[in-house]
Design a binder for these strands. Structure first.
Lengths: 218, 218
DNA sequence: AATTAAATTTAGACAAAACTAAAAATTGGT
DNA sequence: ACCAATTTTTAGTTTTGTCTAAATTTAATT
């Protein structure tokens, strides 16, 4: 497996899609900031290796093997992110870039030892679940803060957008995973939210709320 | 810097050589298990980037910039080796392969944090010195066990050959860095050594002794 | 000094992964 | 059902790093 092949598999996985709703080459190209023709070339190669299904003009979907492989890479990415935050004091907005490199290191023993060192974490610093060694996902009961109603409460368990600017915004406003948020009011005009968090009240836009996952507990 | 360029610089550094005694393309090719013509191609590229000096048919030597770059890679390699042994319980014969991959990760912050986590080690698990951030080497007063004389004593401080088979041999015989060795006798016939180490006596071949660095202390 | 042997470089080719531009297939609208 | 617009693929080119085979330079020997 080359680095490029691994990156394609990961992207295809993240774009979702299944046999009945395959991913278009255009979508993959846009996500990877490359050209559709390059995607077609790679799709052929991956199809030959049995990692994706690809019918001409009909898009791409992961095979079982491809899914397993993608999950392995995502597992490594997320474990390295936890390592960087917990052991090396990186902040959650700094880890992605480095993990993009570390996820391609080939050593089963290495990643298993990192897993053990971290005491087998279930979630990465952004709240995304870490697949188990045998490719199982710990799905979680969660919903977007923007989908909740007035007076409901929930614990912040993840972010949908894990870009540095968004994460820095959260830091600046004291929003972090594990904190409990109560919705005091929702503005009719722009759907902005008035929330309470650890005794403090603050206002956040709908766009912020629609990128925060919470676990409802009221 | 591509991975390949980094590997060439590292190899050229390890082969030693200086401006008055440059490394031949053949030597580099043999070390890297590639062809001399490939080395010539890369030598040109590295020369253009100011990393090596290369005169046609006259071999290759590192420039100051090339040396600095090579030391940076070697620093990363050796720090990762220490990490693998101290934090993840790898044995010293397992670390090289993985470190060969990890040394190419590009993040100054990452390697500085690893350095700090390990409490700024001066030597790697094979006793090789770790260059400082500004490219300084901690040279050490050491000599080969095979160059010492009868009745002299020394502490084992490094291995010349760090291949897995040799390291496993040492493990099997209880030889490790930090142990004190006294030479009881040297056999005229084959230069094999009769040594004492922590109360035990054993016999080792000249070949073994010529791959063990000790610091004399008698 | 000439010739041969060895080392090194050049020239041309290939594979991987990308690109551009052109061709082909699909989709949607009428 | 057809035409136009969009999407996707093909064909041909580029770059990086490698190779083989041929040519060239250096070194060694007589």
């Amino acid at each position: 497996m080359t680095r490029s092949e691994e990156n394609y598999l990961k992207t295809i996985f993240h774009l979702g899609g299944n046999d009945s709703a395959p991913i278009t080459t255009n979508a993959i190209a846009e996500q990877m900031e490359t050209k559709p023709s390059s995607v077609t070339d790679m799709a052929k190669k991956l199809a030959e290796k049995g990692l994706v299904n690809h019918k001409k003009y009909q898009g791409v979907s992961l095979t079982e093997l491809g899914t397993k492989t993608a999950l392995g890479i995502i597992r490594k990415h997320r474990l390295w992110e936890v390592f960087l935050v917990k052991k090396l004091d990186f902040s959650w907005d700094e880890v992605h870039e480095v993990a993009e490199q570390l996820e391609h290191i080939k050593s089963e023993k290495l990643i298993d030892k990192i897993d053990a060192l971290l005491d087998f974490p279930k979630y990465d610093p952004h709240g995304d679940p870490i697949p188990t060694k045998d490719g199982k996902f710990q799905e979680r009961d969660e919903q977007l803060l923007s989908d909740m109603s007035i007076n409901s409460k929930g614990v912040c368990v993840g972010v949908k957008d894990s870009s540095a600017p968004f994460l820095k915004f959260l830091d600046k406003n004291g929003i972090a995973l594990g904190k409990t948020i109560k919705i005091l009011d929702i503005e009719d005009f722009d759907q902005s939210l008035h929330i309470e968090m650890e005794g403090n009240e603050l206002r956040i836009s709908h766009q912020i709320a629609s990128n925060l996952f919470v676990k409802r507990n009221d």
